[in-house]
Structures are given as structure tokens and as C-alpha cells.
Design a protein around this nucleic acid. Structure first.
Lengths: 414, 414
DNA sequence: CGGATAAGTTCAGCCATACGACTTAAATGA
DNA sequence: TCATTTAAGTCGTATGGCTGAACTTATCCG
């Protein structure tokens, strides 16, 4: 059994240019994480660099259009007034793409976190043809890219979100049950790198739930769905739908595991003597807390909407209430395993769960209290995910922009 | 709900000295990971630094006694013969300490990976007094430190391994059920930093299974228990005993989670209608595959040894065989959850499991095949952990030495 | 109006690495 | 035996990024 990582690559040698890259990224991060306009002097004291150095670096970031200067505010203290620095709006942008069972679309975000453009087409994409659908998405994306480029923006890259097992390193989709796709390389089918002009757009693929998870983190625009609670940098995100996906977010980055398949909570064992799952095993979480199981348990049809379920619950229907208690216990049991294994104390529930949370919370928390070994020593937080409206589009675009902020050198002097 | 990590610290500004530190560590790593003597020129081509720079850095590492030169080998090619560089033996050393239910001890490892000194005292430490036992361990450690320092070695630090929930950041032990300890700060009780001389020895604490996990990784001396198979850099380590601990190792580092409590596989749900666990919940893995459960299931007494169980199995006793099949299925079910959640494809079984592996393997693998969602696309490897003889002592010492290799600057020019 | 205060800029100095030339040390072969 | 070849390791200059102190700019305050 030989494996590739036995001689993992060493980091490259550091030279003067490496210093620059590091400090450029440091200054960029300081501006982005300041939570408001900040001066060069603020950045200097936040980073530990001298004001002289910060000035040089800021100059480069301005030139790269990664940050921007605002007109000086009315000064309130003695001393020369500061020039406010902010993330640049509508200059360098990221593109999020997604194909999911009920829609396909793309969204462009700028560095300030604002949605610059988007195009979402609801559709039923169960068992569709990958090349047709991805070709269609590619055309949408090209149109959107052309549009924002006409306005002088630069698209830094794109991330494609797919609801299935995506190998992040080979950019290969192994299987997406609900789309009926398997074993394909989605990127060539988008036709983005062979567009009209000769430029190539860097595109990556990732699992939809993982990208949605990234959209939850605190910093960024608060122009989104819900008022943004203070989301920590490390949390578990669980997205309920027909399947149940999840992601481990550590310091605002996805923990991918070996292939990018971490977080498959939908098939965690809840009860081995439980119902058979479509995966072949028995008693998987999905069979208790997946969308189909919830609807079936409440006496609704598989095609019904979450709102029907919610109506049944609000009407006090016993079948629905019982089913949700059962689902909550199952979800709590699986989350307890999750927390026991990875020791992360915040769980954000997304997908179909946020409106159902009032019915799920008690059994989930009861199960966590009794099953999480460390529960007596560290409080656990279970909350609704703040962003859910096509979160993977936002997450994908943000992932691109994170790359820009963390590696600004590529955009300097271009 | 306010949490501390919302404003996580930024990395420090990089300056010239940072470059040095980085490249010094790079050169050190190159020598340590070469797998044999290597020349300055080898290091240069491995790192991408010039030979001139490597010479300077090697000079410093030699001065810090982190690496050493060997007498030149009989040259086989034309050209000036290389001066072989190797990790230094018996210069800078790491100290591993451990208190466990059946022994306490300490072990000193040098940078070459050799055991320089050790002192292990078997004892029954169920429900012992922490201050007495830790005081005793501290005295052992001081004696060992004095001994190796007389031989001219420098102890770089120490790591204390404890079988319980250890908060790695506060160095606090929350609970260690089998020792009967709870809520205590173990480090002061060791009395190592207030020793006879005024020096302070940096000591950290960690969970025993996690440190044992670190002892498994491939590089390092092969003077240990078993012939070292090629262990990858990323794997799950599971240690069976009365309780079942585990660790997630990614790129040869422990994934600690929020507090250092990741890997509590012993209380993953196997069957909610199963037996009650001492943790209060029902159907935890420990109740199927923990040592007590195995002995009880095989009709043996709780105090019996693993060898008795093995004898019963080899004699073909039905109760023992059935019990191990059941344990294997339970372990496989829990491991399947683990792999589904963290996507790591190698599992090393340690503790009492290696000799039992022939009886566990089939049910474990069957369960993994049917329950791991990604099983069709990536082979899983379940193996016996190569190191098990007081592995946490080795892991703890290695952890200290990893710090030396990755941050050599502190040892240069001292 | 002038001193205090603070933001931002300029410039000499330092330091680590690169690059090319040089030295050292062995094998090779006429 | 001795020049040639090959490769390891060292030396000296050049480059580039950061620092620190002095300087300029711009505002407030008495």
C-alpha cells in the first residue's frame, strides 16, 4: 500500500518577494477585517508594520484595485485627518456558479461583499443531462462576466457548486444522486476557459453544502437574508434537504479531508435497526431527518413543500409533531457524534431546517446534552444559519475573493 | 452569545528575521525528512535555496546542535565528496511524561528519534491522588533530566500525557474517569518549573491517545516495536482500552478541535437501544468494543488481560468469537461515521486492538463497505498501529522535538 | 495666530538572499 | 604523473524589503 502523501511537498524557500507577499496580504486582511474605514496608521498599529511600509503596501493594493480610498471624513480630533481605506467596490469580483435540483444560476460578488449581478433560473433538474445543463450555465456565466467586464470589473475566478461528492483536487464529480449525474468532469462542460476571448477564467468545483457553509461567516456584508448574528470563525454547518450535507468550518476555511468528502452526516448511523436508506445501509440520519422522511412522516406527499409541513405543524397535527420530534432526536444523535469526533461547539442549521427549528431544538439539545461527552464543560450552540438564499452562490464567489485577499500579489502591477 | 474567536489574531508582520526563521526551519526539515545523510547541495536543490544560503543556515543549525556532520563517506563519484548531514543525536532532546491507569513514566528522545533514557514504573493508579502521583512523576522526570543534562544534552521541553479530557489551551484536565481525577491543573503538581535550578522547562499537557497517535507517523527511528509500514501523514488513530480514544492526524499534526477534545469515538452511537453506558447515554461504542465489554462478552472477569481473551479466541470459544464479531461490527459502524464525517482513508488501530485484529477485521471492513458513502471511490485502509509500547511517551517527546525542528531560531546562538 | 497632535512621506541603513566567480577535493584517463 | 572533469562548498557584490528617525502636511484648540 503506497500512498502519495508520504512525501508531501515542503513549502517553498522564502525570499524578499515572499516577505512582500506576506505583508501585502496582511495589510489587505487588516483593511478587510477592520469592520469599517481605517487609516494607514490604523493598519500599521494593527499589523505591527511601520507606517512607512504600510504606505508602500497600501499604494500597491490601491493600484491593484483591491482596496480604495474614501474622501476624508470631517475630522474630530487634532492632527492631520486620516484617509479612510475600505475594500474596493465593483473592481475585482468573484463568480459563484451552481447547479442544484431546483435551479441553476450564477452570482457576482465584489470585494466589499455586495452582489454586483446575478442570474438565477428556477428549474426542475432531477435526472438532467450534464452537458446540456452545464453548457447552459456556462452561457449564463459568460453573459454575466461580459456584463460586469463592460462596467470595468475584473472577474478573479469562479467556483461551481454541485450537490454531490466532488473531489476537490481533481475537480471531478463522483456522484450527484439528485441530479442523476455520476463520474464526470464538470469544468470542461461549462466552456468557460475556451470563451470568445483568449483569457482563461480559473474555475474550481466544490460541494454545494460546503460553499453554503462559507457564506455563513460573520464578516462580509450584512445586506443578506437575516440580520447577521455573530457567527464564529469555527463551526459546523448542516444543510437539510432530501439529502443532508454538512461542512466543518475551521477559521473560516473548509476542512475538506482527503478528497473533499468530509461532512457526509446524512449517512451517520442513528439506529442500525432503522429503515433502509437509499445508500444501501440502514438507519442513516437521512431516513429520519431528510426532507422526504419528514414529509412522509407527516403524511404529506414527497413533492410537497416545506411550507406545507410547517402549516401542518402549526395546525398541531400529531403525525407531523411526532415526526419532527423523532427527526430532532435523530439529528441530535448524529450531531452528538459529530461534536464528539471533531469538538466544535457551534452548529448552524440551514436548508429546510431554519423554519423547523422551533420543533427540532428541544429534542436536538436533549440529545446533545446526554450524548456529548464534553457537554458539562463547554456550552454548545445550535442556531439557524443566517444566510440561506442560494448560499452556495455567495459562498463560491466569496471563496474566489478570499483568494484575492490572501494572495494579492497576483493582482498587483497587472 | 459572544465568543472569543470572532476576532482571531492576525499573523505577525514579516521582516528579515522572519525570512531567516522560515528558511532555517526549511533546511532543518529537509535534513530530517531526507531519510538518510544528505549534503548541503542536496538540501539546496530540495529547498530551492542557493548553496551559499544553505551553507549559512546549516552553519547555524550545526551551532545549535540541531543537525550534525558525519565523517565523509568513501566517495563513489567524481567531484568533491559531500559532507553528510544528519539529525543530531544526543544533543537537544524532548521529554515525554505519562500517567495512565497501569503505569507512570517518562522517556527522553533525541532528534535522531532514539530513546536516550526512560523510566517507567508499572502501578495500579485507579482512583489515585493526583498531587501524590504527579509529584512522583515530577521527581522521576527531574532525575531523568538531571541525568541527560550531565551528559551534555539540553531538554527542549516536555509533554504530559493523561487519559482524559484535556483542554490543550488552558492545560487543564477536566476529567480522567479511570484515574478518578477531575478539574485540576496538572502542571503545577509536577513541580518541574520550580526545580532546583532556576531554569524553567516548557511543559504542555495533552490527551494520551492523541500523543500516541503522533508516535505512529512514518518518519523517525524504526527502532520501535513493529517494522514500520509506510504510515501516511494523514490518518485516524483509534486506541482501544477500557475507554476508546482516538485522534485525527492531518499532515502529522493533531486536529484538536476547539478545546482539544476531538476524537471521542468511544461514545459514538452504535445502537440507541443498546446497553447503558457509564457516560449516561445508551449504545455507545465503548459498550461494544471497550475492553470491559469484550471481556464480559467473552465470559471473562473485568480484571483479566487481553491475552486471556486472545487465548479464548484461539481456543475457538463461541462466546468470545461472537463477542468479537459484535465488537467489530460496532467498531466498523462508528468508524464509518468517522470516515463519513472527516474523509480520512487510513485507520490505525492501537491499544488492545492489534492482537485482536484478525477477529475484528472482517466485520469492521464489511461495515465500512456498506456505510461509508465514498467507499466505492476511494479505498479505505484499516491496519494495526505500528507503535504501541507506551506510544504516548514517544509521541509527547516527539511533539517537543517537532517544535524544535519547526522553530529552530530559539536554539540558534544560545 | 501659533503650539499641539496625528497622518503620511522621505531617506539612509540594515540584513537575508541571489548570482556568479572562485576554491577545494575527489575520480578519470592519457 | 598530471591535466581534465565533476561536484561541493565558500566568497563578494548586488538587490530588494523593512526599519527608524526626521520631515511634511493638515487639522484642532486656546
Amino acid at each position: 500500500m503506497h500512498r502519495a502523501d508520504t512525501n508531501r511537498p515542503r513549502p517553498p524557500a522564502a525570499r524578499q518577494a515572499t516577505l512582500r507577499e506576506h505583508n501585502l496580504a496582511l495589510v489587505a486582511r487588516a483593511v478587510f477585517e477592520a469592520g469599517g474605514p481605517c487609516s494607514r496608521a490604523d493598519v500599521a498599529s494593527a499589523t505591527g508594520l511601520t507606517r512607512a511600509t504600510v504606505s508602500t503596501l497600501v499604494e500597491q493594493l490601491l493600484g491593484a484595485r483591491i482596496i480604495a480610498e474614501l474622501p476624508p471624513l470631517a475630522p474630530q480630533r487634532a492632527g492631520r485627518p486620516a484617509v479612510p481605506l475600505v475594500p474596493a467596490a465593483r473592481t475585482v469580483v468573484g463568480l459563484g456558479l451552481e447547479v442544484n435540483v431546483d435551479y441553476l444560476g450564477c452570482r457576482v460578488l465584489d470585494l466589499a461583499g455586495a452582489v454586483v449581478a446575478e442570474h438565477v433560473e428556477p428549474d426542475d433538474l432531477h435526472d438532467c443531462d450534464p452537458s446540456v445543463v452545464l453548457g447552459r450555465l456556462g452561457r449564463l456565466a459568460r453573459a454575466l462576466v461580459a456584463h460586469v467586464e463592460e462596467d470595468g470589473m475584473t472577474v478573479a475566478g469562479a467556483t461551481l457548486a454541485l450537490p454531490g461528492l466532488v473531489d476537490v483536487r481533481s475537480a471531478r464529480l463522483e456522484v450527484a444522486p439528485n441530479l442523476g449525474w455520476s463520474r464526470l468532469d464538470p469544468l470542461p462542460l461549462l466552456g468557460l476557459d475556451t470563451g470568445g476571448d483568449a483569457r482563461t477564467l480559473a474555475v474550481t468545483v466544490a460541494n454545494e453544502a460546503k460553499l453554503a457553509a462559507l457564506a455563513q461567516s460573520a464578516r462580509g456584508p450584512d445586506s443578506d437574508d437575516r440580520p447577521r448574528a455573530d457567527v464564529p470563525d469555527t463551526y459546523l454547518y448542516v444543510s437539510g434537504d432530501v439529502g443532508i450535507g454538512s461542512a466543518i468550518v475551521v477559521d473560516r476555511r473548509i476542512f475538506h479531508g482527503r478528497h473533499g468528502w468530509a461532512g457526509e452526516i446524512g449517512h451517520v448511523v442513528v439506529d442500525p435497526s432503522g429503515p433502509r436508506c437509499r445508500c444501501g445501509a440502514t438507519g442513516c440520519l437521512e431516513q429520519y431527518a431528510g426532507k422526504d422522511a419528514l414529509l412522509r412522516g407527516a403524511g404529506l406527499a414527497p413533492g410537497d413543500a416545506t411550507s406545507d409541513l410547517l402549516a401542518a405543524l402549526e395546525a398541531g397535527e400529531t403525525a407531523a409533531l411526532t415526526c419532527l420530534r423523532r427527526a430532532g432526536t435523530a439529528l441530535g444523535s448524529a450531531l452528538a457524534d459529530y461534536v464528539n469526533l471533531v469538538d466544535i461547539d457551534t452548529v448552524l442549521l440551514g436548508g429546510i431546517y431554519p423554519p423547523l427549528l422551533p420543533y427540532l431544538r428541544a429534542p436536538v439539545e436533549a440529545e446533545l446534552r446526554s450524548r456529548v461527552l464534553a457537554a458539562p464543560w463547554a456550552a454548545l450552540h445550535v442556531d439557524a444559519a443566517p444566510v440561506d438564499h442560494h448560499a452556495a452562490l455567495t459562498g463560491g464567489a466569496r471563496e474566489v475573493l478570499r483568494g484575492v485577499v490572501e494572495h494579492p500579489t497576483r493582482w498587483v502591477e497587472g
